[in-house]
Structures are given as C-alpha cells and as structure tokens.
C-alpha cells in the first residue's frame, strides 16, 4: 500500500542538561499524515539512533490523552494548535506539507528543563502533597451513595476533577502561574462533602506551597483556559480566589 507522506521541517529545542545552554536544531522528516505527533518524534528518534546520534528526550505515557505526561509547546502553543487535546492526540494531518514546526519545552521557573523537551513538573506533586487530598480513616469499604450528593454538584466537581495535571496552563501563562491547576483541585474538593473538613487549611496550604515553589500571580489573561487539553474553566480560578479569601478571613490559623 503506497501511502502519501508529508514532508516537514522541525526546529526542536535541544539542551543536554538542566543548567546548560540549549538551542534549536533543524530536522527534516517525511511522515504519514495518520501518525500522531509523538509517533513522528519516535520515528525521528529511531533514525537518530541508527546514525548513533543522541535521541530527543520527551515524555509520554498513556498516549490517549488522560495521563498528562506528554506536553510540548508546538508552534507556541502548549499541546499544539488544536483545542482540548493533549500532544499525544495531535495528528500530523493537521500540518501542511512543507510546514516548519517549532517544538519547545514547557517554560516556567517552577518547571526547569531536565533535558531537551522534558521538564521537571514535580512542583505540581508538591502542591498536591500540601493539601490536595482528603484525610479518611482506614476501615471497611463504605457503601456507595452513603453520602448523598446531587447529580449537579457531582458533575460540577467532575468538571474540575477532569484536570490531568499536565502543566499546560503554567506553560501557556505569561506569568508562569499555576492558578488553573490549583483552582481545579481546590474547587473539586470544596464542592464535595468529603472535602469539607479540611476546606480552609487545604486552600491555605496549597496556595502557600504554590507561591513558595515560584509560580506567578494570575493576571486574568485566560490563556490557560484556551490551552487546557481538558477545557478547565477559569471559573475554577475565581472559585480559588474566593475560597482563599474566605479561608484567610475565617480560619483560626494565624500562622499560615
């Protein structure tokens, strides 16, 4: 079967180690329009390895848009030009024959480059460890539906819980702010009964950790919402602002 291939010129960010100076390297590829963006990079890496060259480092895991591991800035947009998909769901048919594609890592002070296109996003894990959980006593499995939650509230919480923690919001933000991510997590818990006991301490701790790790302040450009692969709304940031303000007024924690 003869398949029509498209030729593309790639300009890919190469950086050998965290604190070294990187630069763009040009590559030419001929690829099936049916290939995904990551498959295109896999093919390129196979060829590089055949020629004893250092393959391009990039992250991926599930390759079906749910794990949040892959994340590249493609032609200036986190996860590429299409809305509401992760990099792994972007296919080469969306590019024109002969097009030049710039591939860069996510940029933010809190997401330092490890190598090439891979960045260290453990800052997100640290924010979650600061309060993005509920404390429960271990014991028997509770009955399903033992805590009544209306369908509307459950759906709203799920909209926020759809965040896959990929970091595209931080990469899209000119301020390197993690408000959409933290907003989604805080909103999800604050809507559900299970999240109530730690509601105030959670938002205080998560925001304090977010600030400590060097994420920026939100200036409401809403670029995060536009680039989010899961379409998380900036209403989550509004909710975070409100939760944080009320927690600061009401909580008994004078140290935080």
């Amino acid at each position: 079967m003869s398949e029509k291939k498209i030729n593309l010129k790639l300009k890919i960010w190469r950086q050998s180690a965290p604190n070294t100076v990187g630069s763009f390297v040009d590559y030419s590829v001929s690829v099936s329009p049916e290939a995904s963006f990551l498959e295109m990079l896999d093919e390129l890496n196979n060829n590089l390895e055949k020629n004893n060259q250092d393959p391009i480092v990039f992250e991926s895991d599930c390759r079906e848009g749910i794990c949040g591991t892959c994340g590249l800035v493609i032609n200036g947009e986190p996860h590429g030009p299409l809305p509401k998909i992760a990099t792994c769901q972007l296919h080469m048919r969306n590019f024109k024959d002969g097009q030049t594609i710039w591939v860069e890592p996510f940029r933010a002070k809190a997401f330092p480059v490890i190598k090439d296109l891979a960045v260290d996003r453990s800052a997100f894990d640290k924010v979650i460890q600061a309060g993005g959980y509920i404390s429960v006593n271990t014991g028997g499995v509770p009955d399903a539906n033992s805590i009544p939650i209306s369908k509307d509230i459950a759906s709203e919480a799920f909209d926020s819980a759809a965040c896959i923690g990929c970091g595209a919001c931080v990469a899209a933000c000119k301020n390197g702010s993690a408000m959409l991510f933290v907003g989604a997590k805080v909103t999800q818990f604050s809507l559900l009964p299970q999240g109530q006991p730690e509601r105030q301490s959670r938002v205080e701790a998560m925001v304090a950790k977010m600030d400590e790790l060097g994420f920026g302040s939100c200036s409401n450009t809403y670029a995060c919402e536009a680039e989010c692969p899961k379409g998380i709304s900036v209403k989550n940031i509004a909710k975070l602002n409100r939760e944080y303000r009320l927690a600061k007024i009401k909580s008994k924690n004078v140290e935080a």
Binding site: F24, K109, S177, G214, G216
Partner: peptide
C-alpha cells in the same frame, strides 16, 4: 510574574 516565567518560548501564540 516576569521572574516566575523565566525563559520564554521563542514562538508565542499569545
């Protein structure tokens, strides 16, 4: 915020 962003992407779709 400028410091939090650090290095900017070369290509921007802002």
């Amino acid at each position: 915020n400028k410091k939090s962003k650090g290095v900017e992407n070369k290509i921007s779709a802002k």
